[in-house]
């Protein structure tokens, strides 16, 4: 879950704000601006709609996986529930820039203990606690039903999201910030210790945005593209070491030095990735 919801309003109303500010705009050659940037702006619009498709696709997968997860919980199949928990979440984590736009739903689906009042706490992590801490599904059926309906609601609402270039530019780095502040510290999945799944999904989500922006980025700064690609490769080759079967090793099995190595690799990637806003400039 996103730690602060402050940026939410900004994401939702970016276009609105921009509209207002243009009216107040006193710099004369505003028309000229519009012409100069129209080409790259429309390229960015294409990217935005491609990303929208990608994110909606992930949310659709998330709905299916959540169905599997919640059914396992309500039918008392604890092993199945544990098995599908982490992979299901990956779809949500990949699409997080969009998924968490809905400030009411994100905490319901993805809040961790302490993020919200205990009596309001539900969603994935509440059930995670039941599965791993208490080793039961009993008493968690209601949470599962609620989760399913919240996720269905998310699927319906996600259609309404307007994906702006700003959302993409901040979203890519935000995904890695999520990794830096909660996944790499083991605080995301504190009962199941499946943090590395979320970690990988966040990185993949960021990579998707980078891939979509690559043609535009190449025009601005080819070296930056090479650098970012190299750093993604570095992160993936580190993650490769922690693969186990079809999934990833438990966070608790990571050595302190390995956690640090992962954290520093994310920093090394996120620094050049934070420069992708250069695509908004005319060349």
């Amino acid at each position: 879950m996103k730690k602060t919801k402050a940026s939410l309003a900004v994401l939702l109303s970016t276009s609105l704000l921009f509209g207002c500010s243009q009216e107040k705009e006193e710099v004369k050659p505003a028309d000229k601006n519009a012409k100069e940037t129209s080409a790259s702006a429309s390229a960015l619009d294409d990217v935005s709609s491609e990303y929208r498709e990608y994110a909606i696709g992930e949310i659709e997968e998330f709905v299916k996986a959540t169905e599997e997860f919640t059914t396992a919980v309500t039918s008392g199949d604890i092993e199945k529930a544990k098995e599908v928990y982490a992979p299901a979440r990956m779809h949500y984590e990949r699409a997080e820039p969009i998924a968490e736009v809905f400030g009411d739903l994100d905490p319901k689906i993805d809040a961790r203990k302490g993020d919200v009042k205990d009596e309001e706490w539900g969603g994935y992590h509440r059930i995670e606690m039941g599965l791993w801490e208490e080793n039961t599904t009993k008493g968690y059926e209601e949470y599962a039903n609620q989760l399913m309906s919240d996720v269905n609601l998310l699927r319906a609402k996600v259609e309404t999201v307007e994906v702006t270039p700003d959302l993409l530019i901040t979203g890519a780095v935000d995904l890695l910030n999520e990794v830096s502040t909660s996944k790499v510290t083991g605080e995301e999945d504190r009962y199941s210790h499946t943090d590395l799944y979320d970690f990988v999904a966040n990185v993949e989500g960021a990579e998707k945005i980078y891939e979509l922006l690559t043609p535009a980025l190449k025009e601005k700064d080819e070296k930056l593209v090479t650098e970012i690609q190299q750093r993604f490769d570095d992160v993936y080759s580190l993650l490769e070491k922690h693969k186990e079967g079809n999934g990833y090793t438990s966070y608790t099995d990571l050595k302190e030095s390995e956690v640090k190595e992962l954290s520093q690799a994310i920093d090394a990637l996120a620094e050049p990735l934070s420069q992708i806003g250069i695509v908004t400039e005319e060349s």
Partner: peptide, 16 residues
């Protein structure tokens, strides 16, 4: 300045 002003609301900074 003009180049960057066209996209993403940067123009606000200048205007304000």
């Amino acid at each position: 300045m003009l180049k960057t002003a066209g996209v993403g609301g940067v123009g606000v900074v200048i205007g304000a």
